[in-house]
């Protein structure tokens, strides 16, 4: 492979990491509180609000059921409003973040539901406020699960980011399509796939190791 091609591969890797990193961060910023809300407003939970819970759940499902490639183009006006542009790597971060948010919310919800109800009862018996229960019990106890959830989200975002090429987002997936497929450069395609495999492996095992270290059960 030519040095130019290697350059391009490196540049694409950086673009992918940038898109995935920022959208993962933004997705966590919104998804984590939403996941908490999904749990604590559920029927019989700390701050039961069934109507709110239903609406929140329905919105999360709606976003998650929209194919990413459609979401990508459907929200172009919103993207332009947020990012100032509708094309390029930064523009791709907006739909990636929007896709990541309900994904993270649902995974965090599942992780939080794993926390033993007895612990919540113990904290209530100690006179804890709902906020204290979230901070002192739900989040710390579910942390290993939340780390696993974020690992899955990042891996999934790497897959989604391949579609960012549709809005000129660049990244490894875009490189593979434009050079590997459209220009018939199988070695580029192979290189992209190998880099992606290594990247996903590294992220998954780092996430697993961290989750294990945090888990004292």
């Amino acid at each position: 492979m030519s040095p130019e091609m290697l350059d391009l591969l490196g540049q694409s890797l950086v673009e992918t990491l940038w898109m995935v990193g920022i959208s993962g961060l933004v997705g966590t910023l919104f998804g984590l509180p939403l996941g908490i809300l999904l749990v604590i407003t559920d029927r019989g939970a700390l701050l039961q609000n069934v109507a709110f819970n239903r609406v929140l759940g329905a919105v999360a499902n709606a976003v998650r059921s929209t194919p990413f490639i459609i979401l990508l183009v459907a929200i172009i006006p919103f993207t332009r409003w947020v990012a100032g542009t509708s094309i390029g790597t930064t523009a791709a971060i907006v739909p990636l973040s929007i896709a990541a948010t309900p994904f993270i919310a649902r995974l965090v919800e599942a992780a939080l539901r794993e926390v033993d109800r007895g612990l919540i009862e113990a904290l209530l018996a100690m006179g804890a406020t709902p906020g204290q229960i979230v901070r002192k019990v739900l989040l710390p106890e579910a942390l290993p699960g939340i780390v696993s959830a974020l690992t899955i989200t990042i891996v999934s975002l790497i897959g989604h980011s391949a579609m960012a090429g549709a809005v000129g987002g660049g990244g490894l997936g875009d490189l593979g399509i434009r050079y590997g497929y459209q220009r018939f450069l199988p070695e580029v395609m192979a290189a992209v796939v190998v880099v992606l495999i290594l990247l996903v492996q590294a992220i998954q095992s780092a996430g697993d190791r961290l989750a294990r270290r945090l888990d004292h059960r």
């Binding site: 007895g118 612990l119 019990v137 710390p140 106890e141 004292h216």
Partner: peptide, 10 residues
Amino acid sequence: FQHFNLLASR
């Protein structure tokens, strides 16, 4: 409590 209800993370 019967099942102690201790925080595993602490």
